[in-house]
Design a protein around this nucleic acid. Structure first.
Lengths: 211, 211
DNA sequence: CTCGTACGCGTACCTTGTACGCTGTCTTGC
DNA sequence: GCAAGACAGCGTACAAGGTACGCGTACGAG
């Protein structure tokens, strides 16, 4: 008996994401999203409780693009790397959303599915119990930290040049590091850092990373 | 000949931090800080260009509390761990500031000094060139990621219980992990995750972590 | 004592989130 | 078909917060 809704959550998320991708995160306002949808500002509130929830929809849309099916073949190392890379790629497609993912990641169903798959791989690698808790947490910490460094950080892009230009008397190593960092792509850095972490996990298993 | 200023940057940062610690990050407004300082709202603008800069002062005050002198003795592993722990402790003293550190860390002088010291330790550990870039970046990524997980994340505190309560049919491993995680303190988790990363660094050096 | 600087601040405006209540429409029950 | 009710869509309005503007005056230099 009620009148039917004309919008789906997906359309709302898409509109909000369009605003962000086009005009930046600062442009994400209730008014802007409503306009994007071709409706009055307050109409948006028929579909969303508040701005908080809107942001959640955006994050879920971005994270929902992550393939959470277990990767096949190869070593558990490579499979873990694949899972981590998938998130990085999905987020990289919408860099402006990064700050939102920090606050809303926790409530994302996609995130849960992702973690479940990762835990499965860790289990197959022979990592269980509390060590598996540590491993998951370490991977997630590295992942979100690295994503932020990449998109908000000083060591990438313009920041690297500023670091390379530091006074060599006070910051000799930093200056040198800044120069070297300019020669390493973000991709390489990310993968190499992840490799270090996986090395650590592998060492603890006593295994060689295969299987 | 001009009239003297009555406030120092330090006093302003202290006032802002006091507001945050007492009433939370959301209470950080220009008006609130001005009132904390016993002055009119607009007077604050004599000392700070805008809110952005105010936040920078707060972050610098928090990060400035980190001891950046090289730790003495022990292995390079332990020295690195000490450096990382120092930041964690400093931030943990003002948890509400965490979101601000993400955006403003880059411009902090304390942060530069800290990185310089860490690079020194890495150098002594025999890690140089591009591998040192990777190592620093990996440590920083883990550090800021872990801090966020600890203070904004789902795997700690209340979030852990929610995860433990997930439907076991769909998320068997997550549910189990949530239960296990409840038995691991945040300190243990942080240190153990860091240890994994350091294991990875150590393996790459071929050394045993001493010296 | 005079003068210029710039401090301290009152006022006001703009942006943004959102409560409230009206109007018209669409679906269902007859 | 048709009446009725629930709810979509929205205009208005308010509160909070950042900050531009311009005034009066305290203060140090000469």
């Amino acid at each position: 008996m009620p009148r039917p809704r004309s919008l789906t959550e997906s359309q709302i998320a898409a509109a909000a994401l369009a605003v962000i991708d086009r005009d930046g995160l600062a442009a994400l306002t209730m008014r802007a999203v409503a306009k994007e949808l071709g409706m009055g500002t307050m109409s948006l509130y028929r579909y969303v409780d508040d701005r908080e929830q809107l942001e959640g929809l955006v994050v879920e849309r971005v994270l929902g693009a992550v393939d959470t099916t277990p990767p096949t073949g190869s070593s558990w190392r490579d499979r873990l790397a694949t899972m981590v890379e998938r998130v990085r790629r999905a987020v990289a497609a919408h860099p402006e959303v990064v700050p939102l993912t920090l606050t809303h990641r926790q409530s994302s169903p996609s995130n849960l599915r992702w973690a479940e798959t990762v835990l499965g791989i860790l289990t197959e690698a022979g990592i269980g119990g509390e060590r598996r808790v540590i491993a998951l947490r370490g991977l997630v910490a590295y992942l979100i930290g690295a994503i932020q460094l990449e998109h908000l950080g000083p060591l990438s892009g313009a920041g690297t040049r500023r670091i390379a230009a530091l006074p060599a008397e006070e910051f000799p190593l930093m200056a040198e590091t800044g120069r070297l960092a300019a020669r390493v792509s973000a991709d390489q850095e990310f993968r190499a850092g992840l490799a270090v972490l996986l090395d650590g996990l592998e060492r603890a298993t006593g295994g060689d990373g295969s299987a």
